[in-house]
Simulated scan of single mutants.
Amino acid sequence: MAGRFAPRPTRTTARGGEVVVPAARPAATAPSAGRVRTYAPDGPLDLGLVLGPLRRGPADPTFRAMPDGSVWRASLTPAGPGTLRVSAYGGAVRGEAWGPGADWLLDRLPEMLGAADDPSAFVPRHRLLAHARHRRPGLRLIRTGLVLESLIPSVLEQKVTTDEAYRAWRLLVRKFGEPAPGPAAGGRLWVMPAPRTWALIPSWEWHRAGVDNKRASTILRAVRVAARLEEAVGMEPREARARLEVVPGIGPWTSAEAVQRSHGAADEVTTGDLHLPGIVGWALAGDRHADDAVMLRLLEPYAGQRHRAARLILLSGAVPARRAPRMPVGDIRGL
């Protein structure tokens, strides 16, 4: 069940949300025809860790990590489509942007890269978390300021394998989105569809992408009130989640996954996940059978920073050995 009812378990989408980004070279900071902004963070910043949660699979058409150490993203901003290229070199971050949404993206570049995040607020109370934080000093929590771009792929990830969800996102964005403005990582980036375009996708195209009627219907309900949902970016994370969960089909798991990215919500831990409670339970108490209640109890010492704590646990690699077959990959296309 979803919405205001108890959620069924699903599974963790981003195992810590890390993307491998090669070290940037000086040539990567050469001027371009796009609009440019330079940002000097007040501490270590790892682009792969900060931007990693935005990538929905290795073939995400809206995200590219390039060999020159740059990360490219295509977004649908309130000002229109925009392409953002980010590279870090010599302690500074260079952002370049193209398209109608370029100024919007550059205005929010520091916030997107965690300028509003306060890693010092996290006080590790377990050796594993202290070690994980020491090994990942560049972790900042991203805040995109865009609700729908995190909500829709999160809905696609409900109760299916990551491969199924990533395939659906890739097919739907490439077929119904639009090419990203500017050079766009060599022309390989796409902007996700606008709300009206999502609403006009025929039922058979959802089927071809492997999206069942329940998830498709949830997305259709969400895009019909897209403006109201985007307003949630100006709310506190808890209030934003409550607004998202008014839409039938959006429950606590989906709302948490969305606001973690749109709001940089340090305390909004994901519940209703198939694996996360067992991972947290194993890492902090040796309990691989922990449920949500046990997970939340173990994370109580990190109140205000529970999402950061859970993410550091995922990044630590302290995962119990698998004892059951992997979740089978479904395919509704032949039904």
Results as ranks from 00 to 15, higher is better:
R85L: 01
L172P: 06
I201Q: 11
W204F: 10
K159Q: 15
T29I: 11
R4V: 13
A121P: 00
E205G: 01
E164N: 04
P61S: 08
V191T: 04
R208C: 03
G80A: 09
L314V: 05
L189R: 00
A266C: 09
P328L: 14
V160P: 03
T29V: 13
L314G: 02
V329G: 06
P41H: 06
V93I: 14
R55N: 04
T10L: 02
I142W: 01
R133D: 07
V71K: 01
T161R: 10
V269C: 05
V259W: 05
A309N: 04
G16C: 10
E96S: 03
I250M: 04
Y166D: 15
A240W: 03
A209M: 08
A185R: 08
R85F: 00
R125H: 12
W104E: 03
V93Q: 00
A27D: 15
I313M: 07
L105N: 00
R94I: 04
P237R: 06
P124K: 07
P320Q: 07
A265D: 13
M327P: 00
R8Q: 14
L105S: 00
R35I: 02
V93K: 00
H131N: 11
R170S: 13
G99M: 02
A97H: 02
A168K: 03
L148A: 02
E96G: 02
W282A: 05
A14G: 03
M192Q: 12
A256Q: 09
A285D: 14
T62G: 07
V223L: 10
W169D: 12
R288S: 11
R15E: 09
S316W: 09
A24D: 07
T12R: 08
P100D: 15
R140P: 02
A165R: 02
G234Y: 01
G281D: 04
P124I: 12
V191L: 02
A74D: 01
E300V: 07
R196N: 13
R188N: 08
R333N: 11
L76C: 05
T218D: 06
G334T: 15
G286W: 15
L76M: 13
Y39F: 15
M112L: 14
G43K: 12
L156I: 08
A222Q: 05
L274D: 13
P58L: 02
A283T: 04
V269I: 10
A310R: 07
V123I: 11
R73Q: 15
W72E: 01
R221V: 10
E245A: 12
D42A: 14
A258H: 07
E257N: 13
V191M: 02
A309L: 09
L54Q: 06
R188S: 11
Y302I: 04
W204V: 11
S316V: 12
S316Q: 09
L244H: 03
E257M: 14
M235A: 08
P31N: 12
T197W: 04
H307V: 00
D60R: 00
G43T: 09
A24P: 10
R306L: 05
A265Q: 07
V20L: 11
W190S: 06
R308I: 03
L172W: 10
D60W: 01
T12G: 08
D117K: 08
V280Y: 03
E300H: 13
W72Y: 09
R221G: 13
V319W: 08
T13C: 12
P44N: 09
P181H: 01
L84Q: 01
T38H: 06
I201V: 15
V21C: 06
G99Y: 00
L284F: 05
A180L: 05
